[in-house]
Amino acid sequence: MQWIYLANFEIDAEAGAMPIFEIFGIPVNDTTVIGWGITIGLIIFARLATRNLSLRPGRLQNVLEMFVESIINMVNDMMEGGGRKLLPFIGTIALFIGISNIIGILPLLKNPTADLNMTLAFGLSVFIFSHAYAVRKKGFWPYLKEFAEPMAFMLPINIMGELAKPISHSFRLFGNVFGGSVLIALAAYAVPGIIPVPLMAWFDLFIGLVQALIFTMLAVAYITIASE
């Protein structure tokens, strides 16, 4: 019991989100602050990279062009001609979540995606975006009629299925990232030294990038399915 309590304390300090200060009575987690930092860093990076665009791209511009092109190609593969239209939304998700997932490898920083509030925000944004996109593409009544397909009594099942999407979408990312950081914290507590290092490389770099890719692909898939 003592050990469990101790481990519990360590994990709380290492992996989970901790409120650090309050604004007007609303507690602000450290993961949120790191998320703000990443946002500001991305804005500064984008400003620097697009300051003097030229036909013969420099190094920063090359990186950005590669990223933008790969996102457009990825979306175009799943949704005919939707690449340019979805680029701002999908590209932002891919960039932010990708960086959030691998930033935990730096000392003293936590993954902002190890906080359910963050991933749930992304899952709900994708949910709202996909349904708004479907309404715009199909019209309101055909969109509502879609829920009663193939038969009218399927209505509650279809609605439950739609509501389960953002939950599984956000819980998948949260579970993977938070589970990885819990395992790293446990390993660092039980066998400090070399053992946590390959674990960090595996969970923060590999799993983080794969989960960011999966989150992005699933977002595109949900939008595609909803608008067809």
Binding site: I4, Y5, N8, I11, D12, G16, S168, F171, R172, F174, G175, N176, F178, G179, V182, V210, Q211, L213, I214, M217, L218, A221
Partner: peptide, 27 residues
Amino acid sequence: LIGQAVAESTGIYAFVFALLLLFFIIL
């Protein structure tokens, strides 16, 4: 990878529930 991610969700639900039981009910 996408198929595996979808297949993984049940495992992730179980994991999140296990974490809830371990860390929140005990505290």
